[in-house]
Design a protein around this nucleic acid. Sequence first.
DNA 1: CAAGACTCCTGTCAGC
DNA 2: TGCTGACAGGAGTCTT
Length: 272
Amino acid sequence: MPELPEVETTRRGIAPHVQGRRVRAVHVRQGQLRWPVPDALARDLPGQSIESVARRAKYLLLTTLRGTVIIHLGMSGSLRIVPADAPPGPHDHLDIVFDDGRALRLRDPRRFGAVLWTRDAPAAHPRLSALGPEPLDHHAFTGAYLHGRARGRRQSVKSFLMDARTVVGVGNIYANEALFAAGIRPTTPAGRISLARYGRLTAAVRQVLREAIAAGGTTLRDFVASDGQPGYFRQRLQVYDRAGEPCLTCGTVLRSARIGQRSSFFCARCQR
DNA sequence: CAAGACTCCTGTCAGC
DNA sequence: TGCTGACAGGAGTCTT
């Protein structure tokens, strides 16, 4: 169930096997994902070469000269490179088969993911057009940006940070971790946080995401990279899923709370 | 308008 | 052992 680091890990894993390859066929075994897989995918993609494998927010973009495949992994999706004749498992919904006899295979038990196809510029696609800045873009994602956007908002800073219109890619794990790293209580109204603290928050978000990417992401249950390997950031989590355990900074017992229907974890001493 | 609840789906786990 | 309910890394859509 990927956030930005897991999607980026997936992107880096599949890119060398996919880039420059020509698509031979598209096999859709279960087309009822978040949205129906469009018929145009299997019609237009075969014969095309993959020019690049990019990421915008948590979307993967496989670009060709004729259009772009847009893939979202939802909560439970993963992509693997497999021999095209490998028998699919029960949740292996879609294969993109390449000219080297291998395939990019999407597995997604919960089917919250999506595979879309657009012939226009992907940035203009309705799913991508209203997204906020990339968190690793330090020109766009600044303390001043967050502070200005939060003005007058009573929403909790955690929900504000997880809203893709504010900034993309920060899901539940990394929102919890970044707020801990910045020393900010997740329940604080977004509009009541100073410019200086937002500066610290943007730095914390970038730091946490960079470290998680370097560790290959976080595996809680079923996330695997395209080579089947889990991510190793779990052992570095400071607060996520650690309610009742001691804070690794000060020893205070960590607390949990429900914020916007999402589990939240914090240290009442380190985060104020 | 902003903010919160609800929804999609399957798997897993705690508690009885 | 088996059943039930809560919950899970997302995010679009609906309601208040």
